[in-house]
Amino acid sequence: MATPLTPDALVRALRAKGVVVREHGNWRTHNRNHKGPWGPVHGVMLHHTAGSDSLRLCLEGTPTLPGPLCAGLVAKDGTVHLVGWGRTNHAGSGSAAVLAAVVAERTPPPAPGPDAVDGNAHFYGFEIENLGTGHDPYPPAQLDAVERLSAALCRAHGWSAASVIGHREWTRRKIDPSFPMPGMRSRIDARLGPRPTPDATPYEPFPGAAYFAFGRRGPLITAIGRRLVAEGCGRYSVGPGPVWGKADMRSYAVWQRKLGYAGPAADGVPGRASWDLLHVPRTG
């Protein structure tokens, strides 16, 4: 479970994995958020377009299903076209049992049960340009892009490849994508590599938002401040020191804004996604 990435954080994550990105129009604010919530997000859902003029379809949708129909379209050449960010009409209703498996990162997911859960609220959706007939090949560059973008989102949230599912694994109504999902998850898993163990990672694990109460004292607070200063986000007149206070929150809010967060999401209280990107060294 996670707060959705900001558009800027998404672009950085994709490009860091070598994904070729093309941004279209007002994609950063093109969404269906007025129809319901988006988030918390639990995983990535993959689809195929099953038609021609895929880019226009993903942007505009149809008279009965308005766009955007996904966050991004993976073209045959491997380019990821970003068309929307927020709630998009890609998943529809699906299985509560499958969602529970994704949240728990159990793979393979169970066979989908009755449609009971709003998937548009809880998954990043990506369409893959393909007719889905079994006779339209997926070029290597396209599959490589699917692997990379999925790994990028999993890495950003600390998820495993079990957080990536196909639309047909979500609901009995669908057959996409028309390639084996276990094989794609294996590719994503290999790209992610083994998860670091607590003893192996050089960085402090996220202590939880409740840790950051005014007056909290310890060497970790000093380490956070030093990393904020190193990132050009320090707003200290003295220090940083070992006691969490207003200067720390001001500095952390600058870091959040640097990552693309705004409004209440840049309140100076560390969250897991921004914490993981700060790379605070271990203090114990």
Rank of each mutant, 00 (worst) to 15 (best):
25 G>L: 11
196 P>Y: 08
204 E>D: 05
191 R>F: 04
58 C>H: 01
60 E>G: 01
229 V>W: 03
1 M>C: 07
15 R>M: 12
236 Y>C: 04
78 G>S: 07
267 D>F: 08
96 A>N: 03
52 S>Y: 06
53 D>W: 03
12 R>G: 02
224 I>L: 15
47 H>G: 03
126 F>W: 06
81 H>P: 01
50 A>V: 07
91 A>T: 12
130 N>I: 08
162 A>D: 07
143 L>F: 04
257 R>D: 08
278 L>H: 09
43 G>Y: 04
93 S>C: 01
148 R>V: 05
78 G>N: 08
253 A>Q: 01
129 E>D: 14
216 R>W: 03
229 V>K: 14
197 T>V: 10
35 K>I: 03
78 G>W: 11
194 P>T: 09
5 L>K: 06
271 G>V: 12
59 L>C: 12
70 C>A: 15
247 A>P: 03
86 G>S: 11
53 D>V: 00
113 G>T: 01
81 H>F: 06
191 R>K: 11
24 H>C: 05
132 G>L: 11
75 A>C: 13
12 R>L: 11
30 H>D: 13
212 F>Y: 14
131 L>H: 11
190 A>V: 06
100 A>I: 00
189 D>T: 09
73 L>W: 11
240 P>L: 02
230 A>P: 02
244 W>Y: 15
129 E>Y: 07
211 Y>P: 00
270 P>D: 05
60 E>A: 13
48 H>Y: 13
125 G>L: 02
274 S>G: 08
20 V>I: 08
195 R>E: 15
163 S>W: 01
257 R>T: 10
181 M>W: 00
140 P>W: 11
20 V>W: 00
228 L>M: 15
67 G>R: 07
265 A>M: 11
103 V>L: 01
231 E>G: 03
181 M>R: 05
8 D>I: 10
251 S>M: 10
275 W>I: 11
199 D>I: 08
49 T>W: 06
141 A>W: 04
108 P>W: 12
31 N>P: 08
218 G>R: 06
151 A>V: 03
145 A>R: 04
38 W>R: 00
67 G>P: 06
207 P>I: 13
129 E>S: 13
80 V>Q: 03
131 L>W: 04
104 A>I: 04
156 A>S: 14
164 V>E: 05
154 C>H: 06
269 V>R: 14
163 S>I: 02
238 V>Y: 13
43 G>K: 04
71 A>S: 07
25 G>T: 01
146 V>I: 15
194 P>V: 02
156 A>H: 03
88 T>K: 01
22 R>L: 11
194 P>W: 07
62 T>Y: 06
256 Q>D: 08
14 L>F: 15
261 Y>Q: 15
96 A>S: 14
272 R>M: 10
237 S>K: 11
39 G>V: 09
133 T>I: 07
278 L>E: 09
260 G>V: 07
201 T>S: 15
114 P>G: 09
12 R>F: 02
93 S>T: 12
90 H>C: 14
177 P>D: 13
91 A>P: 02
257 R>M: 13
29 T>D: 09
275 W>D: 06
176 D>M: 10
275 W>M: 10
236 Y>I: 05
32 R>E: 10
68 P>S: 06
117 V>N: 00
119 G>T: 08
69 L>G: 09
6 T>D: 01
274 S>P: 01
